[in-house]
Computed example of a mutant assay.
Amino acid sequence: MVDKIKSRQHEILTLLLENKAGLSIDEIATALDISRNAVQQHFATLQKNGYIQTGGFHKTSGRPVRSFILTEAGINSFPKQYAWFSELLLTNLKEEMGAEALQRYLHKLGANLSQSLLPQFVGKQADEKLDGLLKIMDQLGFQAKAIKDPDSNGQVIEACNCVYHDLAQKHEEVCEFDRTLISSLLESEIEHVECMAKGGAVCRFKIINRGEHHD
């Protein structure tokens, strides 16, 4: 994200965003009025983080010089309005479908995603499935871990962030996607015992073992 990128490096990324064909080290040094060595140092960091890559050669009055271009990660480092657009979609879907139908739709989305991921879980033990689920949640942007439930001594998945927090506050049906994905991949019932969108400190999903009774 841009706020994690130093201001000078952000200026370099902006120049490359405005010049899709690429720019050379000298062109960027001139545009920003900094030394060639300084540009090279910033380039080293930006390349290491995957934001830029080498492009083609620029023809000049002298010998051709190497240009540098943005990668997809570099382009995506600039702010996007996904949350705004998602809220617009959900608001309109709820108006057209109703809250219950929207929740069923999100359940279907979670189920469809889980079906594409299930081959990774075939033949795995319960603990291995849980580890696999936590890795997937991490890839989706959650900061999740498994803890022991002090009451039942069973497993609880605890996430200290919610990737749809703003959306879920306005459209609680969004949580059905998470509940469906988790229960489908673990092949177990789960209980959403705490939710940040409803004022909780974290999101907790209690894994219900066979034979365990819950309200």
Rank of each mutant, 00 (worst) to 15 (best):
D33C: 08
N209M: 04
I25G: 01
Q155L: 10
L46I: 00
Q169L: 14
E95L: 13
N19W: 00
L113Y: 13
Q40M: 14
Y164S: 13
I5N: 01
G132N: 04
L13C: 01
Q81T: 10
H165Q: 14
Y82K: 04
F85G: 04
E87Y: 10
I190P: 02
F57T: 11
G98K: 05
D138N: 10
S152T: 15
V193L: 09
W84S: 10
G55E: 05
S35V: 07
T54S: 13
Y105I: 01
L13W: 00
L13R: 00
E176H: 15
E194W: 00
C203S: 02
A101Q: 14
I69L: 02
S61E: 12
E11G: 03
T14S: 13
F142P: 10
I69V: 14
D33V: 11
A126T: 12
S24W: 00
L89N: 07
S188L: 09
H192D: 00
V193M: 10
L102M: 13
N161E: 11
Q120R: 14
E189M: 10
K59C: 08
I12R: 00
I207A: 02
Q103G: 07
L15Q: 03
H107K: 14
G199S: 06
L186F: 05
E18T: 00
G154S: 14
E95I: 11
I28K: 00
W84Q: 12
